[in-house]
Design a protein around this nucleic acid. Structure first.
Lengths: 187, 187
DNA sequence: ATTTTAAGTATAGAGTCGATACATTCCGGT
DNA sequence: ACCGGAATGTATCGACTCTATACTTAAAAT
């Protein structure tokens, strides 16, 4: 029995609570803010409803309704994808971006600065927990291109080996639902 | 900007998601399981609706409704408190206890065992984060008697200096909403 | 060309959650 | 003993989540 277990459970509850407070300040619910935060960090393969469903472990129907609310409030825009008939690209509006400005993470940041632990070590531990939990839940890991098995560095930029498309530098630091762990670090 | 920030945000989302999965297995929602888990660890000063509202940052009305659901499903019982006319003591039924048996924390436990960090160090860091977040949210800290400023060790057992009542040993390891940090460790 | 899969939507039902109003009990001071 | 406020719990309304189910349409596989 690990003593950190109850602490992590409580920490999860507090994080959820802080997110709820943030959301309430804008007349929203936690999942709304979480979706906005996700979209602010998703690349062009991942700013679609199905990716949100996978990321948060929700059904497509649930996500569809939450997105309708966000669109009605003018926080996101739906843009049909010409190349894939059925797909809808989700874009943050300036108003949507503004919601992310004041966040509980400011507080967390301050607390972390005072934490009596090496930052890198804590990061490694948390990353390990995340990866493990995701694997156990049968979820996609949602990493960034630079550390992806499909990432190809080329003479004049980079390319995704899965879609064969060139990648704008700005896209490669965003979350991707196609992310795959390279063989080298498959521990 | 701390790198652990996004990790903790994602970890919070995953914890919530795991809790939702656990709850769904019993036809419940996350908050239901969280309330049951809380009641399993609350002492006799803290197994009342108002304490749950404080612990999870919800209004009394919201908690009242969730408790009605749990009672209707036979997972808790409400027992009027003779000494305090209006208060209601909340007790887990065997069925309620059974819900807590299979939990995502089993997975988390396994992951923690493989974590490349000293258990005590991680615990200290997490405890610091918790305390800081709670203070920033203006919440009660909800600790256990053994580390409480009101805790009095006596010849034949122990006593709560706030209520003047003697404490059964079994009660002193449970969460208490009256918990106060001793001056010595007020860092 | 036909089937299967993927992606999104629509709808109904249970329940959360906040807001508001209300009832009851306790506790303070006078 | 009385009054007023604080604490605790409940009732009700409205917006919304979330699942389940059924339904579309487009892409992929055979």
């Amino acid at each position: 029995m690990n003593g950190s277990l109850l602490l992590l459970e409580r920490l999860g509850a507090l994080i959820h609570q802080s997110t709820r407070d943030d959301a309430a300040r804008h007349g929203l619910l936690p999942i709304h803010v979480q979706v906005l935060s996700y979209l602010a960090r998703a690349n062009r393969y991942s700013d679609i409803p199905i990716a949100i469903a996978e990321y948060f472990g929700l059904t497509r129907g649930t996500v569809s309704q939450s997105l309708a609310v966000l669109e009605r409030k003018g926080l996101i825009e739906k843009k049909p994808d010409e190349r894939h008939g059925r797909r809808v690209q989700l874009l943050l509006t300036p108003a949507g971006r503004a919601v992310l400005e004041d966040s509980w993470t400011k507080d967390l940041d301050a607390e972390l600065a005072a934490a009596p632990m090496l930052a890198g070590q804590l990061e490694d531990t948390l990353r390990g927990l995340l990866t493990g939990l995701q694997r156990r839940n049968g979820q996609r890991p949602f990493g960034i291109c630079h550390h992806c098995a499909h990432y190809l560095r080329e003479a004049d930029g980079s390319r995704c080996g899965l879609t064969r498309e060139p990648l704008a530098e700005e896209q490669t630091v965003r979350l991707c639902r196609e992310w795959t762990m390279p063989a080298a670090q498959s521990a």
